Amino acid sequence: MTHAIIARKAGGPEVLELTEAEVPVPGPRQLLVKVAAAGVNFIDTYQRSGIYKVEYPFTPGSESAGTVVAIGADVVDFTVGDRIATAEGSRSYAEYTLVDADKALPVPDGVDDHTAAALPLQGMTAHYLINSSFRVEPGHTVLTHAGAGGVGLILTQLLKARGARVITTVSSDEKEALAREAGADEVLRYSGFADKVRELTDGEGVNVVYDGVGKDTFDGSLASLRIRGALVLFGAASGPVPPFDPQRLNAGGSLSLTRPTLGHFLQNPQERHWRSAEVFRAAASGALKVRVGGTYPLAEAAHAHRDLEARNTTGKLLLVP
């Protein structure tokens, strides 16, 4: 027997319970992985709370890193003892999890287990945002929200490496210090940020806004864009954006709006390898710093969810079996 977190119904963090479970058995093209750490992400809270529909009993978690301890039939790319990570797993809030071999990412030497668990989802998210949702070029001015969050810190570093000017928003002095350490050129508070962005850009606005906050920042994000700017709405940490009139895009200056999700940017092995290899290589070389903002024993998954939903965390939160 082993242990896993199980929610038997939708609800608040209190529905997450540490429960005895059977060790999973890998099927064809699957890996059984002993979890070293599992990433805690907003999608886990959406599933737990019932915003996203799942079947109960339910074990959250799509992101983890660990060691392969058994392989199923037809696995040729990995062997027992390999270190892997994934952003596309399931039931990773557990001591053991199954990962499809096609969605397993080799972890290079020089990347420790906690970094490996913290990087896949947010690292590949940042990668697709700046390369595929809106291609950032040297000299672009970019606004990112939640600059001290897990995606925000990685995004800022990748944007600076690309040669962009980065404006970001945070909620506290502590978070401002982290955002500046990551390379942000300007750090704002959320209140009145759109007017301040206009001031910082001589009234012109930014080329693109990367907005993972959602409802609370959406209007200000639109108001921060220059003519023909793009709003990339990739999350909803403050809640989903209500329906809105597309005519606002015309009135704002022929703006563009997209609502992407990571899975649509990992459509084949080549794309998955491109994104993961670039971010892991940057982490292994030290060019990309990955901040783990908190580690929790697996049994304290509810605590991790409370902290994440309160938005009083920085960097990545991990559960450690």
Rank of each mutant, 00 (worst) to 15 (best):
M1D: 07
I5A: 03
R8T: 13
K9M: 10
A10S: 12
P13H: 08
E14G: 03
L16C: 07
L16D: 06
L18K: 14
L18H: 02
E20D: 13
A21L: 05
E22T: 13
V23P: 01
G27S: 12
Q30Y: 12
L32C: 08
K34A: 15
G39A: 07
I43W: 11
D44S: 11
T45L: 14
R48G: 08
Y56C: 02
F58K: 05
P60E: 03
G61F: 03
E63F: 09
S64F: 05
T67G: 00
V69N: 04
A70T: 09
A73F: 01
A73L: 10
D74Q: 11
V76M: 06
T79I: 04
T79E: 14
V80I: 15
I84K: 07
T86C: 03
A87F: 14
E88D: 06
G89A: 09
S90T: 12
S90A: 14
Y93L: 08
E95R: 14
D102R: 15
D102F: 12
D112H: 09
H114G: 01
A118F: 10
Q122N: 14
A126Y: 03
Y128L: 02
S132R: 15
P138C: 07
G139I: 00
T144L: 13
A146Q: 06
G149A: 10
L153N: 05
L158P: 01
K160G: 01
G163T: 01
R165V: 08
V170G: 04
S171E: 07
D173Q: 11
A177C: 02
A177N: 00
A184F: 02
E186C: 00
Y190P: 01
Y190N: 08
F193I: 06
F193H: 11
D195A: 15
E199K: 12
T201D: 01
V209C: 10
G220S: 09
L225V: 09
R226D: 03
I227W: 15
G229C: 09
A237S: 15
D245L: 06
D245V: 04
N250R: 15
S254T: 06
Q270W: 01
R272N: 00
H273K: 15
H273W: 13
R275V: 01
V279F: 08
R281T: 15
A282S: 11
A283C: 08
A287L: 12
L288Q: 05
Y296I: 07
Y296N: 08
A302V: 07
A302H: 06
A302Y: 10
A304M: 08
R306F: 09
L308M: 13
R311A: 12
R311S: 12
P321H: 04
